[in-house]
């Protein structure tokens, strides 16, 4: 088999536009999912460290379910199955009236999946603060909520920054699964260029380089955040 090279396809319309639109959707899916993942993941992570046995059990169930089903299948469950199981009106609203259902499903599904992984980092981050700090907070009269708010979480947040960087990279990469439910993000667009022009190598090279660039940007940005938030005297690693 011989391959006909044609790199100019990448700067030809409409293909250049497809790549840029793919990049936009990758960023939108990953960004929205990241917000969901951070909020839910922090909540579930805190649940797993609370004194209440029920709270810890709830957190564990969440993490085990979302960690042990493939992300692809989770997206299919959110997209094809859950709307059918919900009350008829809500199901109809999701399928008919919700604008861009593929996008919201992908972002939410990816967010809830990543939340389980972030919850584990948050839990480890809180545990790494140490019992001493928790006990000192309690001894100085803080309630459990106050202890988390003023002592445990501010330190834990700094502990989890390095692992969060790799979770953020994962969410960017995993946003490619959105193509399976019809969101034409970067990988999906490069695939579409391949099937339209047969210039697969060029299209995949472009998408791959954009992913590598995104990775480098994320690492640089997170390093800046780490440096800006570091507390002198408290090591990131407990």
């Amino acid at each position: 088999m011989t391959y006909r090279w044609n790199w100019s396809v990448l700067v030809t319309e409409p293909y250049l536009g497809w790549l840029l639109s793919g990049l936009t959707w990758t960023l939108l899916v990953a960004g929205t999912a990241w917000i969901v993942a951070l909020l839910i993941g922090t909540g579930v992570g805190i649940l797993r460290t609370l004194p209440s046995r029920t709270a810890r059990a709830l957190g564990t169930v969440y993490v085990e379910i979302f960690r042990n089903i493939p992300l692809l299948l989770q997206l299919f469950l959110w997209y094809f199955v859950i709307p059918e199981l919900l009350p008829a009106e809500i199901g109809r609203w999701i399928k008919r009236d919700l604008p861009m259902p593929e996008f919201w499903t992908a972002a939410l599904g990816l967010g809830l999946f990543t939340a389980a992984r972030i919850a584990e980092q948050v839990r480890a981050g809180i545990e790494a603060v140490g019992r001493g700090q928790a006990m000192a907070a309690a001894a100085s009269g803080l309630s459990t909520a106050q202890a988390y708010r003023h002592v445990l979480l501010p330190i834990a947040a700094r502990n989890v920054l390095p692992p969060l960087t790799s979770e953020f990279l994962n969410i960017v990469k995993n946003s490619s699964l959105a193509l399976t439910i019809g969101v034409l993000e970067l990988t999906g667009q490069s695939r579409q260029i391949e099937s339209n022009t047969f210039q697969g190598i060029e299209a995949f090279t472009a998408a791959t380089l954009i992913y590598v660039l995104l990775t480098m940007l994320v690492i640089a940005a997170m390093r800046t955040v780490e440096r800006a938030t570091a507390i002198p005297g408290i090591l990131a690693r407990a």
């Binding site: 990279l169 990469k173 490619s176 990988t187 391949e194 190598i201 992913y211």
Partner: peptide, 25 residues
Amino acid sequence: NGLRSVPLIMVIFWFYLLVPLIIGR
């Protein structure tokens, strides 16, 4: 580092495209 910065789906597509080109069938 290169492979770890690219989505697995992308890698699957790459090899689905490249392996036949390299092997020739």
